[in-house]
Design a protein around this nucleic acid. Structure first.
Length: 602
RNA sequence: GGACUCGUAGCAUAAUUGGAUAGUGCACUAGAUUACGGAUCUGGAGGUUGGGGGUUCGAAUCCCUUCGAGUUCACCA
């Protein structure tokens, strides 16, 4: 995955490309050395310069001290390349100062590029599958699912922007004992009520009966234990549980009445999910349903046995031995002939490859399944699928609450719909307090609250490295200060305000004297395409989030201290406004990659 | 017990995948508006990167060890 050591050459930033070539020539001329490791990095802000060559790796061939080597290379570059205006040496670091004209020209190039940073996929580009969401249909989605959905969606958009084809998929766990529990409870206690008759959102409605089941189940267990039965036995013997098990058998036997009930209840859930997905702003190219895929595993077993990758035990169960890979033996097929989760996943993966002939596939699933995916990919590899090595588990950490762990039994679950509503209504309250929205229609204002509230939520969840466990503090996420989505949106809104005020086309001058701060911003803009590539190969929206945050911080400082519309010459006004608009554009693109919108005013 | 992940300031998080004096936000503190939008900006204070050892020009990052947290090891999904 990491194919290079330095971001500049890897991602083809223009100046690094030029320098890389020249330094190769230079090393050849000075030390007659070829193919050396040329490492660039951003110049730390305490030193003068735009880009820094790390000379330590070159000492081997220069056979001189770090300072002396750096000086020699610096002299060479300054003389040979017009872009290198000056240089300084600090220990083993050669800080190169690039001419201002270069940066200005650089900016003009990015300025005229539409949809800057985004690469459209060519016909021949590889296809990536991104699986995310994949809910159970027995309860509404909660905070943990939100991280999953936002991550999956954003990663898919980022990969798309990096020039690959992307298909978003999910597998809906629409069958099994958990759904039967809701079904039993609804039959027994529901008295025929529906989401329509009681006004609940479909998924919440079905979730209610899942909880009802659990309550009643616990009561029955307690009763049996009081009569002297042992806890484990009571869990198995509770009548309502047996009823659910019986229902699962009926379902597998395709009994029409049960199938009809199952379809009805799942239908309610999907109606509810649709609303949640829509508000979250996520979508899918194809849904897989476990009720279709759970049988796929059988074929896999045959293939595996044929190839000798699996083996059958005396009782008829089928296994794979992964002990030579440092893992355990893993069951593939139960002795009663039914498949397990793993078997289905293998089957589904193969099915998907037939459907899309993807080159890469990412699974957005929590890190409690790290082991599962390790095994899955290994098995696919052993079965001889060459795409197995391009499968990636986009493993993300749990979302913690300040109060501790989210536990459905203790009622500490943060419901997705409630949370979104809370974010949006808080955005509304803040906007009203600030009173900046006069003259806006109710419709526009509501759309704005949605953009701001959801933007805050999305940015908050995505700015953290996916791999890491994160803490979600509802209060802090709604406080729109600091490193937040609203901070970024606000910068965007102010830029749009400038554009409205100026109200004529920006004509980029041929040349203009740029300030140090402007040069910094241009440099930052220049890195954007590289950041998208980096985020795509690392499956990390956090890189995009951090990038845009840094850009906004720089721009805000600039905005605060530099007149734009009141600049002293027309050329300057045009340039500065052009620079601002481009920053605005990049903000918009970056936020779009995070699934978040930006408002023209707020 | 085995396997895996993580530990950075009071809290939340970065660090170009081994590079310079470890950045940023919140909270705390002192300031800035006759200005293109103050949901902003400029300062200050706050660190033995859990502890100890090692590898090397150079370690938050790699190795060993120890402490702490979490996940996982079902003919569950």
């Amino acid at each position: 995955m990491h194919d290079g050591r330095d971001i500049f050459t890897k991602t083809k930033i223009m100046i690094a490309k030029i320098l890389h070539k020249e330094i190769e020539k230079c090393l050849s001329a000075l030390y007659s050395a070829e193919g050396q490791d040329i490492q660039f990095q951003k110049t730390t802000k305490d030193f003068k310069g735009d880009i820094t060559l790390v000379v330590f790796p070159i000492l081997r061939v220069s056979k001189k001290g770090p300072e002396q080597t750096a000086e020699q290379i610096g002299d060479y570059l300054k003389e040979k390349i017009s872009e290198v205006a000056d240089f300084n040496v600090v220990k083993g670091f050669l800080n190169l100062e690039i001419a201002k004209e270069f940066w200005y020209n650089q900016f003009v190039n990015t300025y005229i590029t539409t949809d800057y940073g985004v690469i459209d996929a060519e016909e021949s580009a590889p296809t990536y599958l991104v699986e995310y969401s994949s809910p159970n249909t027995n309860k509404p989605i909660h905070l943990g699912h939100i991280r999953n959905n936002l991550l999956g969606y954003s990663v898919a958009e980022i990969i798309k922007a990096s020039g690959r084809h992307v298909k978003k998929v999910q597998v809906i766990n629409d069958r099994g004992i958990h759904i039967c529990k809701s079904m039993v409870a609804w039959e027994d206690f529901g008295h025929g009520e529906t989401p329509e008759t009681n006004g609940l959102k479909g998924d919440h409605f079905v979730g209610k009966y899942y909880i009802e089941f659990d309550k009643y189940y616990k009561k029955e267990i307690a009763g049996l234990v009081a009569e002297g039965m042992d806890q484990k036995e009571a869990e198995k013997q509770a009548p309502i549980f047996k009823k659910a098990q019986a229902m699962l058998l009926s379902w597998e036997a395709k009994e029409p009445v049960i199938i009809a009930l199952w379809k009805k209840m799942n239908g309610w859930v999907y109606d509810g999910f649709d609303i949640t997905y829509k508000r979250l702003g996520v979508d899918f190219d194809k849904n897989y349903y476990e009720s279709d895929t759970y049988l796929l595993g059988k074929k896999v077993v045959e293939i595996g046995l044929e190839k000798g990758v699996f083996y059958r035990k005396e009782d008829g169960s089928v296994w794979i031995d992964l002990s030579t890979d440092g893992l355990d033996e893993k069951i593939i097929l139960r002795s009663d002939g039914t498949s397990v989760y793993m078997t289905q996943d293998i089957g589904t993966a193969i099915q998907r490859h037939e459907d899309f002939s993807f080159s890469n596939m990412a699974y957005t699933v929590g890190n409690e399944q790290d082991y599962h995916f390790k095994v899955l990919f290994l098995i696919l590899d052993k079965l001889g699928y060459d795409w197995a090595k391009n499968c990636y588990h986009l493993s993300y950490g749990m979302v913690d609450l300040p109060s501790g762990k989210m536990k459905s039994r203790e009622g500490t679950v943060v419901d997705a719909d409630e949370l979104m509503e809370e974010m949006v209504s808080t955005a509304k309250n803040i906007a009203k307090d600030l009173g900046k929205l006069e003259g806006m229609t109710d419709e526009a204002a509501n759309a704005l609250y949605e953009t701001v509230g959801m933007g805050a939520l999305k940015y908050f969840m995505l700015k953290v490295d996916p791999k890491k466990r994160m803490l979600f503090d509802p209060a802090e996420s709604i406080d729109f200060n600091g490193n937040t989505g609203s901070f970024i949106q606000y910068a965007y809104a102010r830029i749009q305000s400038l554009v409205r005020k100026h109200n004529t086309e920006v004509l980029m001058p041929n040349e203009v004297e740029i300030t140090t701060k402007e040069q910094e911003i241009i440099k930052h803009l220049t890195a954007f395409p590289a950041v998208i590539q980096e985020a795509a190969t690392n499956y990390s929206p956090a890189l995009v989030a951090n990038y845009v945050y840094d850009l906004v911080k720089e721009f805000n400082t600039y905005y605060q201290h530099t007149p734009i519309l009141n600049a002293e010459s027309n050329d300057l006004i045009n340039f500065r406004l052009g620079l601002s608009t481009k920053v605005g554009e990049v903000i918009k693109t970056a936020m779009r990659l995070l699934g978040a919108g930006v408002p023209d005013r707020m």
